[in-house]
Amino acid sequence: MATSILTSKVRTDRTGREPSAPVGQGRRIGSHVVLVILAIYFVVPLWWLAVASTKTNAGLFAGDALWFGSDFALWDNVTGLFTHQGGIYWTWFRNSFVYAVAGGVGATVLSVLAGYGLAKYRFRGRSVFFALLLGSVMVPMTALVIPTFVLLSGMGLLNTMWAVILPSLLSPVGVYLVRVYAQDAVPEEVLDAGRVDGAGELRLFFQVVLPLLRPAIVTVLLLTTVATWNNFFLPLAVLRDPNLLPVTVGIYNWQALSNAGAGGEQVWNLIVTGSFLSVVPLVAAFLSLQKYWQGGLSLGSVR
């Protein structure tokens, strides 16, 4: 399969190497112009969000949407998030954090264990399970939300944090990535050498295998954490208590109310500032962890 060949090549990535083919001076300028246009397209909405979060409710409607208004109201808006509905925004923020960490770490642990087990042990039923896993990658996760809702309701878990965390532990793609990566990254000889030295299987796993799998672990952790942080359909369906919502569903509710409601419910400045603050952690994480994901996300190409 082409994929495992790809992974091994990816690991010797040529980051920072010279360009792959010589190009003429004119072509270079043209390329840069196209890139600048693309960069503007992708950044302007975020620029707008940052600028808009410094405006008052009235300022948002005052025109000059892409530049700062007369008053700088960012701190007032942040304070507003602490006082509006008893500061529920920060409860949502904390919930998102709990869901993302629990879902992300949990899904990663399960994926690493299962991926390694599938790659390095020949137990009965393994091929069947792996075929099932491959098939499940193509099952749209949203098709599961409605039956999951009914099942969770049967277990009495609706409207609890578990209703979001437990289904988030499932990451067939994560298992698949670790499985493909471990195949080449953990040589059979190293495991055998450890066994000859008398190391048990668990000790081998913790002391030999885990360090070798680090790039795959970082990637899966990133993918699953982002997926949980961004999740919308599942929490929208299984949570009713406003105090349990993640920030995505909470802000969605505010926006729907503001669009439908009277003046008192129109908290556009809080929606904008809340949205802005909610994207800061992940954008900051991505920018600061570049080194890890730029190599790691290319693992996505093995899928």
Binding site: A39, W48, L49, V226, N230, T248, S278, V283, F286, L287
Partner: peptide, 19 residues
């Protein structure tokens, strides 16, 4: 540019659509 084009991936779909 590579980084800037990638940043929207880190934005939740809800926030992206809202924006």
């Amino acid at each position: 540019t590579r980084l800037l084009i990638f940043v929207p991936y880190a934005i939740p779909a809800v926030i992206g659509a809202l924006m």
